[in-house]
Every structure is written in C-alpha cells, then in structure tokens.
Nucleic acid binder design. Structure first.
Lengths: 253, 253
DNA sequence: CGAGGTCAAATGTCTGACATTTGTGGCGGC
DNA sequence: GCCGCCACAAATGTCAGACATTTGACCTCG
C-alpha cells in the first residue's frame, strides 16, 4: 500500500508517529509488507528526516515495525505489537474501524480477567476508590438512554471500569486499565444502537454496573466476581466469545 | 544521585538505554529527582549526543522519565512506568536487586491472574501447546534438586508458565508472559535455597507443576484453575500476599 | 554453474549550528 | 518594599549535511 492516501499535516514528530501508528493498527499495511522509506516519508509529509526517524523509532519501540540497515522497514506480525502500551491503546481508541479480530481478543481478555480484578477490588477498595466508582456510576445514570449523549456515556463507562482496576490497588492491573478505552469505545461504535432495549433476559447494563458497585462497597468478593461477569456477559455472547448456554453454568462454575 | 558510579562502556544507544533504564528500575534515582543532563551523559559515557538522545527517547517512551525543554528530565512516579512493556520486563529480569515492592506487585498480579489463564489454557490448548508444556516440564525435572543448575531450572520454569499463557490463545494474555521472567528469576535469587525441602504441607513445586500440566492436558478447567493456584500459593504466602489461613478457603471459594 | 566482487540502496551515526522553552535574577516603576 | 516586566542563561528540541555501515542484487570471472 502506498502512502498517497494518508493526510498530510499534523503536529510534530509525535503527531506523525500517531498518524502512521493508527494507519498500521487500522490495517493500512499488512504484516510482512515493507514500510515506506525514510526519504519518501520526508517528501510526502514535508518534514525533516529527524522527525521521520523519531516517529519510526517510536513505532519500533511499540513493536509495530522492524528496521534493518540496508533492507528497510518491515511491518511486524500482530502478535509482536505491544497492545499493552498506553500509546497503542490510546491510538486504537479513536480509530473508526479497528481490526475486529483484535477487538475480540481484547474483550475475551477482559471477560476472563475482570472477574478476578473485581475480587481484588472488593477486598482492597478504599474510600476514594468508592468515590470514583460512585461518580462514574452517576455519570452513567445521567447519560443513560439518551442517544445524543452516547459519547459521554462511554466515557463514564470507561471511567467506571478503570476505577475497578484501580481499586485493586495493584500496579499491574491498574496499568491494564488502558485497554478499556479502545474496547468500550469501539464496541459502542460498532453497535449503532448501544442502548437498545434489552430483548434478552440479562437485564440492563446500568443495573448490572450498579450491582458491581454495591458488591465492592460491601467488600463482598464473591458477589463482585459474579457481578463483573454479569456486566460483560451480554457483550461476550454477542461477540461469540462465550456460548449463550454456558454463560451461566460452566463459566461461573 | 550522581552518575559517577555507573559503568562506562556498553554497546550502542540500545545498550545505553538499557544501562540507564536498569539503574532507574533498581532505584538509583528516585521519582521526582532530576535526571542527568544530555551534556553530562555525553561526557560521562563518551558517546555522541545522538546516542544519548536516542536512549533518553526510549526511556521517555517507557514512561520512566519525562522531559521538557528548558527544565530538564524528571524521573516519573513508579505508577507511570510501563511495567508491561517487554523491554522493561527484560531489563528487570537481570537486575541483581529489583525493588522488592515492585516484585510483590507483580507476583500479586500473577496470583490473581494465572488461575484464570489456566482455565483458558485448559479450554484452548492444542497439540503444540501441550508439547511446549511437556518440554518445559521435563526440563524442570532434569534440573530439579541440583543447586548448580538453578539457573537452567528457572529458565524452564519461565518457559512452563509462558507456555500456559500462550496456550490461552489470547493475544493479550500471551503478551503478559513477559512479566514472568523478572518475577521468577528475581524470586529465585532472593531465596538463596530455592529448592529447600518442603517444611510445609504444600508439597513440592515440581509435582504441582505436573498437576497443572495434566489438568490442561485433560481439558479440565476447574482442576487447572486449582492447580495454578497451588503452584503459586507457597510463594504468595511467603511474600505475605495471602494469609496462610485463607490460602485454601476464601480465595478458592 | 558457482564463487566472489562491485555497486546501489537503505538505514545508522556523527557534527555543528540554530530554535524554542523554561526558570531566574535584575531592573525599574509604583 | 512589593510587583511586574525584561533580559539572560540553561536545558531540551530541531534542522541540515555529510559520512559510515549493512544488505541484497547484479555482474563478472574462473
């Protein structure tokens, strides 16, 4: 793929890295393909070689491309990408069409991980954690059911789940909160009607979030784990990550 | 802290980044302190400004330091560090004395996460995954009980757990396998007698790994989850992450 | 047909200068 | 004496040009 269809102007070397990184995440180039040469990038974006090299160094650090003297730059396999890096997550969060396979992977991770995180949160949450959860939950309440405010609703949704990760009071889990934004935002964009009336028996999303909040508030680890599973199950079923039948049996034991 | 006590020669800009990064991870400078200036680094290591700037750019990308024109470089808070980046993990893996608090955080994460990973592995493992697990397990068997081969034993230990993460067939979990190396290697270095005879009733480590392998082989998710908890529990008790009493009750439900 | 050499192409590195941002100290006015 | 403004120094950011090194391909010669 040539770079003819990429926009020109953006701010500085970081902006260039972001532009190229998002193009890579969106599948503009495929793994194994050769990435444009430094000189071509300089000409196309009308920037100095320094900026190009700085941007490419960022992409290398994120495992998106691989460079060797004399050969050029190659796009790495998706398995090499540093999905856990905050930069990658932030870039992925505002792409219109991220790789659906990638989204499934991220959500499958969340579906297996967040119950355990909720357990930890129920045991470790402190007053300020509960305040953050409460604030995010109220934000979700205010913006619920209004399609024109779905963007804000997603923001509060992200904040809620991030607060859960943070309440675990574990550095590693907390950093993984970065993965939430791309997952939640992209999923809402995918489903044009994010707040469709629940045609299944799983109850509405807001109430499930509320039950998770209450479980953490009461330091009930078992209830928190179950509530976290409930929050994610509907989407997991939609994405085919877990079969409808086992959503309530084998998975939860 | 000055940089007078850091060694001089290492290979290239990557080597310099590694040296400085490991110094940061080891607590050579504390969060909030100002990092040495470019010019001083050039002089001390006798390298060009390009290499210094390249190395510092890496440290910025990893969230270890923060730079602003006119002010200099500051060491970031530990919470900002990108612990999930493979580079950081690799650096941390061969530091003689990593921050013990950091190790506790990483192990606490593993203790809460690996049971869920083992569940996924039991459901998703394929033939090649079982081969990898088997090979690592046999390697652990060969090197067990021989203090002179504790390094190789640790390598096989890492390979075993990495194979479990990989067997989950989830991109995100698989990438988190990077965290295993620093965790396992550092813990073995800490306990001078890694293979001391089991004075508690938890059984020996090798047998517990074997039970995890068998559970995955038989696609028994419940047994795999329990076995993974068993593998980690002894160390978790030693580190004070979980109380001895609740190791078998509340945590496993 | 194969081994080796030569060349072009691409990335890596160096150097020196200049631009920009930031903090600080001095200077003057009120 | 206090406050605001200005100028300067210090640090990082940026640029441009040249040169070094690695790689792959082509070409030649035995």
């Amino acid at each position: 793929m040539t770079l003819a269809s990429l926009p020109r102007h953006q701010g500085g070397a970081d902006g260039l890295a972001r532009l190229l990184g998002q193009a890579l995440l969106a599948g503009y180039w495929h793994p194994g393909e050769t990435f444009p040469r430094e000189r071509d990038l300089c000409e196309h974006f009308e920037v100095s070689r320094n900026q190009v090299r700085s941007a490419l160094a960022t992409l290398v650090a994120l495992g998106l491309i691989e460079r060797t003297a004399g050969r050029g730059s190659l796009v790495c396999e998706i398995g090499e990408w540093h999905l856990l890096d905050p930069l990658v997550s932030a870039w992925m969060a505002d792409i219109e069409a991220p790789d659906p396979q990638l989204l499934r992977e991220i959500f499958a991770f969340r579906y297996s991980a967040e119950p355990a995180v909720a357990r930890l949160a129920a045991r470790a949450a402190e007053a300020e954690d509960l305040e953050r959860l409460e604030a995010a939950y109220q934000g979700m309440q205010r913006t619920a059911g209004r399609p024109e405010e779905s963007a804000q609703h997603a923001e509060h949704d992200v904040a809620f789940h991030e607060a859960v990760y943070r309440a675990s009071h574990n550095l590693v889990w907390r950093q993984m909160g970065h993965l939430l934004k791309p997952s939640i935002v992209a999923l809402i964009q995918r489903s044009q009607a994010p707040l469709q009336p629940q045609r299944d028996g799983l109850g509405d999303s807001l109430a499930r979030h509320g039950r998770l909040l209450e479980a953490i508030r009461h330091r009930d680890a078992d209830a928190a784990e179950a509530a976290a599973t409930d929050v994610l199950r509907r989407t997991a079923v939609d994405l085919g990550i877990v079969a409808d039948a086992e959503a309530g049996s084998a998975w939860r034991r």
